[in-house]
Design a protein around this nucleic acid. Structure first.
Lengths: 125, 125
DNA sequence: TCTGTTGTTCCTTTTTCCTGAACTTAGGCC
DNA sequence: GGCCTAAGTTCAGGAAAAAGGAACAACAGA
């Protein structure tokens, strides 16, 4: 099991971020982590593990696919992950991202929220 | 030669935009069109053709590849293209994009400008 | 009409992505 | 300890997407 690699702020590239967020699943994961951060300030508590995250995202994907998605998000510098026991807890690197590319993550997540409204407000029948 | 298809504002998706801009060449094209718009207000004049755009981007790619890039940008709703004679003139759909996803394009282009400074200001030796 | 330029379409090669299967790691239970 | 289970990881195969060459279409100008 190789160690978790996290890029330093100046190693984070715009291309890496856009590529990571261009995938709907990964964007949903990031949105879920952001929501967690909003609910459990400061700094989103201790993060969420992969299973819990995928449940919130309401997608059931093979474990290998999830692992890849989290790897890409981590290497893009979007999330910081930490192994605790057998689990992997991740959270957004909001502060660093906002210093590196001010407003970028916020505007993408706003656009995401606008185009994919929360399912907590479903259409009544 | 099939007609040029442009999505209406509400057909424009965040995923389409992020996917289109996740490619370095396409991001550079969009940045070049934005720069054109800045130099020739309002609305960037009549647009730039593909050859001229690729020259500003300082990339020499096969024509087929360029054609594909412009197609993807167009179908994502980022640019509006128009055939005039044998040429294809394109320009950014700034206004519509900003109404659809406020601040999104601006923050991406700002991040791009920050991470890839213009080569007009090279490091002195 | 002929020629050169611009861009498109098609098709093949290359690259990237997805996923099932086997594996690693850690915790719980007897 | 031995065994089992759950959470992720790694790897290899096939599927999907992107890149690029070649032939083509459309127009302008001589």
């Amino acid at each position: 099991m190789r160690p978790l690699r996290h890029p330093s702020p100046d190693e984070i590239t715009l291309h890496g971020i856009l590529h990571a967020l261009a995938d709907p699943t990964r964007l949903a994961i990031v949105a879920a982590l952001k929501e967690q951060e909003r609910c459990v300030p400061p700094d989103g508590g201790d993060g969420i593990n992969c299973v819990e995250t995928m449940e919130r995202v309401k997608q059931s994907l093979p474990k290998s696919t999830c692992s890849q998605h989290f790897l890409i998000l981590r290497e893009a510098g979007l999330i910081r992950s930490e192994r605790r026991g057998v689990e992997l807890f991740s959270r957004l690197r909001c502060r660093e991202l906002n210093e590196r590319f001010p407003g970028l993550l916020q505007s993408i997540l706003s656009a995401h929220a606008a185009s994919a409204p929360v399912e907590a407000a479903p259409v009544k029948e």
